[in-house]
């Protein structure tokens, strides 16, 4: 479903990712862990086309996201091509990124109408269904600013699902939430992961959640994959010293 080939990303002299290779199978739930600055979030941002690769290629469902073939050369993909591939991908952000100039309902219907070409009635029916799923049917006509952080993040999740993505990227979705709101959002995500065919790529510091829902966990450090294993293996008997250090540091903190 997703394939990174020799992907490098540099900001000026700063190397974030270097020679990265990995694949994610359809329907898989893959969690990326590792110290901050290890390049996890950059991977999600590259997939969402919020950043462009310095070198290497990314494929989504067999289609190249980063480049197009022109003649016999590969050239960086233009906006149009990216839009085409991006259709399958959704993302939930740490800071929710809801649109404050739209009410909750319009946040959910805007893109399905404009980008997928749904009719208003279809889009609204879908929105109501999803708000029901995330338990916020009573907030249809609220402004995002009137909602708590937890509620905003539920709306953001519903908004991403409204696009019927094949791949959903979760970027530290609970990091900005008050501690008592975290569990609810994670439970919701777990439900979605278990009841849909969506492929998940998740960056999180919630190790309990990662162990609970992931099919695979990738441990990152300095832009490289240190360890790639099932959650049970990685959390209970990691192969690498670096993983052990990281896990004990995180778990100690609580």
């Amino acid at each position: 479903m997703i394939r990174f080939e020799d992907v490098a990303k540099r900001f000026g002299d700063h190397v974030v990712l270097d020679g990265l290779n990995f694949t994610v199978a359809p329907g898989e739930f893959v969690t990326l862990i590792g110290p901050s600055g290890s390049g996890k979030t950059t991977i999600l941002r590259l997939l969402m086309t919020l950043e462009q690769v310095t070198s290497g290629t990314i494929h989504v469902d067999g289609e190249c996201l980063t480049h197009v073939r022109r003649g016999d050369r590969l050239v960086p993909a233009d906006e149009k091509h990216q839009q085409q591939v991006r259709k399958r991908i959704g993302m939930v952000f740490q800071q929710f990124n809801l649109f404050p100039n739209m009410k909750v309902l319009q946040n959910l219907t805007e893109a399905p109408i404009r980008s997928l070409g749904l009719s208003r009635a279809e889009a609204e029916a879908r929105a109501h269904e999803l708000l029901d799923l995330v338990g916020l049917s009573d907030k249809v006509h609220a402004h995002p600013t009137q909602l708590s952080g937890g509620q905003q993040q539920r709306v953001a999740i519903a908004r991403a699902l409204a696009m019927r993505p094949d791949v959903l990227l979760l970027d530290e979705v609970t990091s900005a939430l008050d501690p008592e709101l975290v569990a609810g959002v994670l439970r919701l995500l777990k439900d979605i992961a278990e009841t849909t065919e969506i492929t998940f790529l998740c960056v999180t510091h919630e190790m309990g959640f990662a162990r609970d829902v992931s099919d695979r966990v990738l441990m990152f450090d300095h832009g490289h994959i240190v360890e790639d294993a099932s959650p049970d293996k990685l959390f209970s008997e990691p192969d690498h010293e670096r993983t052990r250090e990281f896990l004990s540091a995180v778990l100690e903190r609580g």
Binding site: M48, T49, L50, Q83, R86, K87, I89, G90, M91, F93, N97, L98, F99, E110, A111, R114, S115, R159, A160, M163
Partner: peptide
């Protein structure tokens, strides 16, 4: 970024 993620 929110708008890009929704493919607008």
């Amino acid at each position: 970024e929110g708008a890009i993620a929704l493919n607008l």
